[in-house]
Amino acid sequence: VTLFVALYDYEARTEDDLSFHKGEKFQILNSSEGDWWEARSLTTGETGYIPSNYAAPV
């Protein structure tokens, strides 16, 4: 399992994006889409796309 942590807060701009807060942890589901990764929040259980430059490996 690849775990990442949010470096900044992010507010979803589309219904496919995932809103999150700094410090929140994610499981990365798909990182082959370039700058946007499909991720599941370990806090909320929700799935959506996150900007890859807002996350770092745990």
Rank of each mutant, 00 (worst) to 15 (best):
W36G: 03
Y8G: 05
G23T: 01
F4H: 06
R40C: 08
S31H: 11
V5S: 04
D16W: 15
G23A: 02
A55T: 12
S31I: 13
D9M: 03
E15F: 10
G48Q: 00
W36K: 11
L3E: 08
Q27G: 02
D9W: 11
I50D: 01
F26W: 02
L3C: 08
G45Y: 06
N30G: 10
A56C: 09
L18Q: 01
E11Y: 09
E11D: 10
H21R: 14
R13F: 08
R40N: 05
F20D: 01
G34D: 13
G48H: 02
H21G: 08
T44K: 03
F4P: 00
N30K: 09
E38T: 11
S32K: 11
E38F: 15
N53G: 14
G48C: 05
I28E: 00
R13V: 13
G45W: 06
D17Q: 15
K22D: 01
D35P: 10
T44I: 01
L3D: 05
S52A: 14
N53F: 12
S52I: 11
Y49V: 07
A6E: 00
V1R: 10
L29N: 05
G34T: 12
L18G: 01
A6W: 01
G34E: 12
A56Q: 10
W36N: 05
T43E: 15
D17P: 00
F4T: 03
I28S: 00
E46Y: 10
W37G: 00
E38H: 13
S52N: 06
S52V: 09
S32N: 11
E24C: 04
S52W: 13
E38D: 05
L29D: 04
G48T: 01
A55P: 02
Q27F: 14
Q27I: 15
A55M: 15
L18T: 02
H21P: 06
G34L: 11
T2I: 14
D17W: 13
A12W: 02
Y10I: 02
Y54G: 08
S52M: 09
F26H: 00
P57C: 06
T2K: 12
E24Q: 08
L42T: 07
A39V: 15
I50R: 01
K22M: 07
E33V: 11
E33P: 11
Y10V: 01
F20R: 00
E46D: 09
L29T: 06
W37H: 03
A12R: 09
T2Y: 12
G48F: 04
E46S: 10
D17A: 15
S41R: 13
E46R: 14
L29F: 08
A39L: 02
G45I: 05
P57W: 06
S41D: 04
E24N: 05
L3Y: 13
P51I: 03
F26Q: 00
E33C: 12
N30V: 08
V58K: 03
F20M: 10
L18F: 10
T43W: 11
V1H: 13
I28V: 09
T44Y: 02
V1N: 13
A55C: 14
E33H: 14
P51C: 09
K22H: 05
I28Y: 02
R40P: 03
P57Q: 08
T43G: 06
S31F: 15
A56M: 11
F4C: 08
E11A: 10
G48L: 03
Y8Q: 08
E15K: 13
A55H: 04
E24W: 06
T44H: 03
R40M: 14
F26P: 00
N53E: 10
T2H: 12
T14S: 14
V5Y: 12
Y49K: 14
N30M: 07
F20N: 01
E15Y: 09
E46N: 12
I28A: 02
L3G: 03
N53V: 09
T2D: 11
S41K: 14
H21T: 13
E33F: 12
Y10N: 02
L42K: 03
E24T: 08
G48N: 00
W36Y: 12
S52D: 03
E33M: 14
E38K: 11
T43M: 11
Y54R: 04
L18R: 01
E38G: 03
T14P: 01
E24I: 04
E33A: 13
Y8N: 06
L18I: 11
E15W: 08
K22L: 06
R13S: 11
E11F: 09
T2L: 13
K25D: 02
E46W: 08
E38L: 15
Y8T: 06
Y54V: 05
S32G: 12
H21L: 12
G34V: 11
L7E: 04
Y49H: 08
A56E: 11
T2A: 12
A39Q: 00
N53A: 14
Q27E: 15
F4E: 00
V58N: 06
A39S: 03
Y54T: 04
T2N: 13
S41L: 10
E33G: 14
E11H: 10
V5E: 10
D35I: 10
S31W: 14
K25L: 15
Y10R: 04
E15I: 10
R13T: 13
D9F: 05
T14E: 08
L42A: 05
N53P: 06
K22P: 03
Y49M: 15
D16V: 13
V58M: 12
T14N: 14
N30W: 08
L42H: 05
P51T: 02
S31Q: 14
W36R: 15
L29Q: 05
R13Q: 14
D17N: 10
E38Y: 15
A12V: 02
D16F: 15
L7H: 03
E46K: 15
V5C: 06
S41P: 02
S32Y: 11
D35Q: 10
R13M: 12
D9H: 06
D9P: 06
W36T: 06
A12N: 05
E11T: 13
N53C: 15
D16E: 13
Y54H: 08
A39H: 00
S31C: 12
S41A: 07
I28G: 00
F26D: 00
Y10P: 00
L18W: 05
V5Q: 06
T47P: 01
S31G: 10
L3W: 11
K25M: 15
E15M: 10
A6Y: 01
K25A: 07
G23S: 02
L18P: 01
V5L: 07
K22T: 07
